[in-house]
Design a protein around this nucleic acid. Structure first.
Lengths: 299, 299
DNA sequence: AATAGTTTTGCAAATGTTTTCATAATATTC
DNA sequence: GAATATTATGAAAACATTTGCAAAACTATT
């Protein structure tokens, strides 16, 4: 089937080749039931032969949907977001849409810019991570009345539709668990909370739960680490270098917890005998890691 | 600044508000130097006031670029691709483009479908992972003459422009390294090579390099594991359960190598004293892992 | 074989931009 | 102050599609 790729192949070229009007070709795509099977077949053959590919831009311009969804994440790089991006991509794909993605590096002004960029592309919807967004972003979303979803966090009082977990509750649960185990002197390692409501909710709930038990941790028990195993390990080493040592480490996420685990191993401490470590997160590799740690300790 | 969001805000609405013609508004965006500073200011104020957002679809339809690039990866989920997606996204963003992304799950027919989908969106370019693609995909790319880049692998003989590493060379180097260390009985753990030229190149080069030294490994030394630490660990345990044991494990990627490392730890073997493990890959977390292993062994 | 009903098709307008060409306004030169 | 060069603006065509409406082509009914 020779494909003569003379000039542009648009819907008109297809119409000519199939000896019908452009309208009929368009209908074949959008309302096939309105076109007689015979002509439909003829048109499809012409499409094949010419290698015609529909032009979404033209459809979008006509007022139809663009067929794309925009997802703005803080970073693509980390396992934790990669997982959600994958799922998102799969669902979107199944629905016949395309995924536009952008990352802002935890900078809410850049987030605004990304949403704007997506709006230029006339995305049919936008998903953002978390519930903390700049005023400009909120205004933009409202003005343009673009369907928006906040993923990652859930909060009943959110003005954006949201789906995710309740990080305050998570922070509280983790803390209470440690308290129930009898810990009173706890080291905290959290990522920077600036522009990261996941972290800040977890941390504030933690401090709250501690305060309820009359516990106020000195600054020396509070440590900040970025999303990096090795830097978290260093932070944990620093915390554990203090004397007396805290009896437990509460980590803002699993990557930090992994670093803390390594730090403990380095210092020859056995977890959980000598030190309790808890991470708020639970992603795929954490299970693997724990299995491994247990295996080592067991063997 | 009240924003009266009456009806659609298009370039004509802006033109009216600024009391100029639509052409002038368009020029303000595309060739600002052709518009007098006074009118430009007036137009920009109108844009602000109305909350106008340019319509890429209309621009694209006019023949301008769509301002988007399509990236098709096997999977987003794994750390290794996440890294490249992040870099890609950053560069694209810096250039003022948007990133469309899709994953095909190592299914080259789906890859074709994804590229087609992107072409419907009239992306300005496409990037694919690896050099192995379906005939249909290649035809499509050629017919539509869409700028295409193959990332991840480099091969001088590739017909697509490509940038990446030479996996055959990598396989050979890894093998030769083990041979130089004196290993002759080597266990191989590789992912499935079907639709994964990274793996297949590495594996074939490995076998070739071994053959040159007159070494042919029995099937029992060849193991397949997916991209999963725990499953790789199991595969390694199986290999190491044989008697005699291989003296080295050559792993097709770093995730597998991590699993192998865990397996060795489980069996109480010390790496590299009792067993050599080499992984072809090198991603961020690998260094961390090795530091940790060394630390454990050192301490 | 004529009428009514149904299915299939085409025409033309609409979508929101950009750009070429022409014209109007302003600046420069003598 | 006229002639010329320069700069700023507008009118209209073009881009590729979709869809409401109307006409045409069939089927079914008598």
């Amino acid at each position: 089937m020779a494909n003569f790729q003379k000039g542009k192949v648009d819907i008109i070229a297809v119409a000519k080749a199939a000896k019908v009007s452009p309208s009929t070709v368009s209908r074949t795509f959008n309302h096939p039931d309105l076109v007689s099977p015979t002509t439909r077949k003829r048109i499809n053959r012409a499409v094949q032969r010419l290698g015609y590919i529909r032009n979404r831009a033209a459809q979008t311009m006509h007022g139809k949907r663009s067929g794309s969804i925009g997802l703005v994440v803080p970073t693509i790089n980390h396992a934790i977001f990669a997982e959600v991006i994958q799922s998102f991509s799969d669902s979107i794909d199944k629905a016949g849409f395309s995924l536009l993605i952008a990352s802002h590096g935890y900078d809410l002004d850049r987030e605004y810019a990304m949403v704007r960029k997506f709006l230029e592309h006339r995305v049919d919807g936008v998903a953002l991570v978390g519930l903390e967004h700049s005023e400009a972003t909120r205004r933009l979303i409202e003005q343009q009345s673009i369907p928006t979803l906040a993923i990652w966090n859930f909060a009943a009082e959110s003005d954006l539709p949201c789906v995710g977990s309740d990080n305050r509750l998570a922070g509280r649960l983790a803390t209470e668990h440690l308290l129930e185990l009898g810990h009173r002197d706890i080291g905290l390692i959290f990522p920077a909370t600036q522009g990261n409501d996941r972290a800040s909710h977890r941390l504030s709930a933690t401090l709250e739960a501690l305060a309820e038990q009359g516990i106020t941790l000195p600054e020396t028990r509070k440590s900040e680490a970025p999303y990096s195993v090795s830097q978290a390990k260093q932070a944990a080493l620093d915390l554990l270098a203090e004397s007396p040592r805290p009896t437990a480490l509460l980590c803002g996420n699993d990557v930090i917890a992994q670093g803390a685990l390594y730090a403990a191993q380095n210092l020859g401490m056995e977890v959980p005998r000598d030190l309790s470590i808890i991470g708020i997160g639970d992603f795929k590799c954490s299970a693997t890691l724990l299995v491994q740690v247990r295996d080592i300790e067991g063997g």
